[in-house]
Write a protein that binds this DNA or RNA. Structure first.
Length: 577
DNA sequence: GCCGTTTTCGGCCCGACTGTTTTCAGTCG
C-alpha cells in the first residue's frame, strides 16, 4: 500500500462526503489528510512499522485518519469507503467535473432524477427534466448541458512548460494593451507546479473593462465564462481556463499573495493574521480600530508577510508543507537559481535516439553558459534507440578524446553513458568498460512492472555498484501518462546516502523525476541531486529551468545540487570516500 | 475530522459572481 493509494482513498471519501452534504470541515479534514499523505516523504507503511514514530505526529492526521491508514495498510481496503459506495455509486463523481456543477446540485440530480452518469445527465437535459428542479432554472440547465462535453477534457492539467509557452503569448498580447501598469501571472504556474490547471492573471489598471475587452481578443480565446466589474474568466480553444483579476496598486501585493496560493498555504496565512488580531483578504491586511478597518499592508507581498511576522516566502514553497516551520526558525532555504547550474550530465546524440551531433550539443551548451556536459547515450538493451554496445561506446569515447583537443579552455566534455539496469539486476555493459567513463548514469527502461521487491533490489544493486555515479529518473513516472515503478524510495534513499550515489532530477517536463517531495527527502538524507535535461536535441537543453523549479519546490539550494559545482570540484567529491 | 499558551468545546479563510430567488445559496478560486 503506497501513500498515493491512501491519499486517493481519502480524496474519494472527501468527494463522497461532500456529495452527502456532510460537515464541510470534516470534508476538508479528509482532503487535507489526503494531501498530507501524498506529500509525505516517507511511506506510511514504514512509519507504521517504526515503533518510535506515530502517524498522529503528522500535522493534519488525528486518531481517526491514523486508524484508517492502518486499516488500509493491513487489509488493503476501507470499511468506510465500502459503506459510502453502498449509498452513492462512484460514477456520480463524474458530475462534479462539470464547470458550475458542485456537490449540492449534483446531489439534487442524483436524488430527484437518479442521474448517476454523464450520459444519464445528458438524457435528463434533453428531455427537459433539469430546469424544473428546485434551485435550478433554464440558465443552469443550459450551463450544465454545455458543460457535459467539457467534463471529459476539463480535468487534464497541462505541463508547466506548456503553460509557460502560453504565458509568453499572453504577456505579449497584453503588452499591447494601453493602461496596464503592472502584470503578473499567479496560481500554480507561479508556484512552479509540475502541472497547471488554469492561468491566473493579475493586473493593475484603471479601466478594467478595457483590459477585459483586450484579453478577449487574444487569438486563442474561445468563450467568456463570466465577466464582472473586476474579474473575468474565459476558456481557450484548448479548453484551458484563464482568469483575469484587475486590482488597484495598493492591493497588488495582497492580491498576488492571495491568488498565488496555494489554498492551504493561505489558510495558514489567514489563521496567523487572526492570531495577531488582523484581517487579511485579497485587498490588503487590516486592523480594526473602533468601527474602522485600517489598511496596514497590501502593495507588495513582502509587506503582507512582514506584518504577519513572516519573512518573504518564495512562491515555490507555498504548499503548506514545511515553509512556516522554516520561517519561524528563520531557516528558509536559500533556493537554487538557474544561473547556479554549471553543467548538464544527461543527454543523447544522433549515435542513439538523439537528433544532434556531439559538436552541436557542445555549441548548445556553451550558448547556455554551461561549463561542462556529459554525453550519455543509451546502452545496447535499448535497441529501439540503437543503444550502444561496448565497441560503439569506446569508439564514441575516442571521438570525444579527439574533440577535447579542439575545445577551448574552460569547457569540459565528459565521457558518459546511460547504462540500463537489466531485468535480472545486472548492468547492460561490463564493469571494466564503465570504469573508463567520467560519469555513469544507471536507469531502468524495461521490466518496469516488476514487483516492489524486485525493482527496489535492482535499483539498490545499481546504487551499490561502485561504477555507477548516479541513478537517472529514479521513479520512472511520466506525468499524466504512466505511474512510477512500484519502488520503495525509503530504501533507495537510504542506500544512496550510504553509497554517496547521486540521484537525478530529470528536468524533462513530462518526467520531473525526482518529484519535489522526493527532492526534499533526498536533501534530508544528505543525498546530492543532479539536475539534467536528458536532451535529445539541442533545444532539449531548454528544459533545465523546469528542473530548477522542481528543485526549488523541494527546498534545494545550490549546495544540494551536484551540478552547481565545477566539474573539477564534482569529480573530486565523487572520488572521495 | 483536527486542533489547542484565550484548549477538550467550538472554532475551522474570504470575497466575486451567477442564477434563482424575493434576500440568498451555490460555485469557484
Amino acid at each position: 500500500m503506497d501513500n498515493k493509494k491512501i491519499a486517493d482513498s481519502f480524496e474519494e471519501i472527501a468527494d463522497l462526503l461532500e456529495f452527502q452534504g456532510a460537515n464541510p470541515f470534516r470534508v476538508r479534514a479528509y482532503r487535507k489528510g489526503s494531501r498530507t499523505i501524498r506529500d509525505l516523504a516517507q511511506s506510511v507503511t514504514t512509519i507504521l512499522e517504526d515503533d518510535r514514530r506515530k502517524l498522529t505526529d503528522v500535522d493534519g492526521i488525528g486518531k481517526d485518519l491514523a486508524a484508517k491508514c492502518a486499516e488500509l495498510v493491513e487489509t488493503g481496503q476501507l470499511e468506510m469507503l465500502t459503506e459510502l459506495h453502498r449509498e452513492i455509486p462512484s460514477t456520480v463523481l463524474q458530475l462534479l467535473r462539470i464547470p458550475g456543477l458542485g456537490p449540492k446540485k449534483a446531489a439534487v440530480l442524483f436524488r430527484e432524477l437518479n442521474v448517476q452518469t454523464l450520459d444519464q445527465l445528458r438524457e435528463a437535459c434533453e428531455s427537459d427534466r433539469v430546469a424544473g428542479l428546485k434551485g435550478f432554472g433554464k440558465k443552469t440547465a443550459e450551463t450544465i448541458f454545455k458543460g457535459i462535453s467539457l467534463a471529459a477534457a476539463a480535468n487534464e492539467r497541462i505541463y508547466w512548460a506548456e503553460a509557460d509557452h502560453l504565458v509568453s503569448q499572453l504577456r505579449e498580447h497584453l503588452n499591447l494593451c494601453q493602461g496596464i501598469e503592472q502584470l503578473e501571472f499567479a496560481g500554480s504556474y507561479r508556484r512552479g507546479r509540475e502541472t497547471v490547471g488554469d492561468l491566473d492573471i493579475l493586473v493593475i489598471a484603471n479601466e478594467a473593462d478595457h483590459v477585459m475587452d483586450h484579453l478577449i481578443s487574444f487569438a486563442e480565446a474561445a468563450e467568456t465564462i463570466m465577466r464582472g466589474g473586476t474579474k473575468m474568466s474565459l476558456r481557450l480553444h484548448s479548453g484551458l481556463q484563464v482568469d483575469l483579476r484587475v486590482v488597484a496598486a495598493e492591493s497588488f501585493g495582497a492580491a498576488l499573495q492571495y491568488f498565488t496560493g496555494s489554498k492551504d498555504h493561505n489558510v495558514v496565512v489567514r489563521g496567523r493574521a487572526k492570531q495577531r488580531g488582523l484581517r487579511i483578504n485579497e485587498y490588503g491586511v487590516y486592523r480594526s480600530e473602533g468601527d474602522e478597518q485600517v489598511s496596514i499592508a497590501g502593495a507588495t507581498e513582502h509587506e503582507v508577510y512582514e506584518c504577519l511576522g513572516l519573512p518573504y516566502i518564495p512562491p515555490e514553497l507555498r504548499e503548506s508543507r514545511q515553509e512556516f516551520e522554516w520561517a519561524d526558525a528563520d531557516d528558509l532555504p536559500d533556493l537554487l537559481c538557474l544561473k547556479d547550474i554549471r553543467g548538464d550530465l544527461h543527454m543523447h546524440t544522433n549515435a542513439t535516439d538523439g537528433k544532434g551531433t556531439i559538436e552541436e550539443m557542445i555549441a548548445a551548451a556553451k550558448s547556455r553558459n554551461l561549463d561542462y556536459i556529459a554525453i550519455t547515450d543509451h546502452s545496447k538493451r535499448v535497441s529501439m534507440a540503437r543503444g550502444l554496445d561496448a565497441d560503439r561506446l569506446l569508439a564514441q569515447w575516442k571521438q570525444i578524446d579527439r574533440l577535447r583537443n579542439s575545445l577551448e579552455e574552460g569547457f569540459q566534455l565528459l565521457k558518459g553513458i546511460e547504462c540500463d539496469i537489466l531485468e535480472d539486476g545486472s548492468m547492460d555493459l561490463p564493469d571494466q568498460v564503465l570504469a573508463q567513463a567520467d560519469w555513469v548514469l544507471a536507469s531502468v527502461h524495461y521490466g518496469q512492472k516488476q514487483s516492489r521487491d524486485q525493482i527496489t533490489d535492482r535499483i539498490i544493486g545499481a546504487i551499490r555498484n561502485p561504477q555507477i555515479t548516479a541513478i537517472a529518473h529514479p521513479t520512472g513516472r511520466l506525468i499524466n501518462r504512466r505511474e512510477a515503478y512500484d519502488v520503495d524510495m525509503d530504501s533507495v534513499m537510504q542506500a544512496a546516502a550510504e553509497c554517496k550515489t547521486i540521484l537525478e532530477l530529470n528536468a524533462n517536463p513530462a518526467r520531473l523525476d525526482l518529484h519535489d517531495v522526493h527532492c526534499a527527502a533526498a536533501k534530508s538524507h544528505g543525498i546530492q541531486v543532479a539536475i539534467n535535461t536528458d536532451a535529445h536535441s539541442t533545444s532539449g537543453m531548454d528544459v533545465m529551468c523546469c528542473g530548477v523549479l522542481q528543485a526549488r519546490r523541494g527546498g534545494l539550494g545550490p549546495g544540494d545540487v551536484a551540478n552547481t559545482r565545477t566539474w573539477g570540484e564534482l569529480s573530486e567529491w565523487i572520488a572521495s570516500p
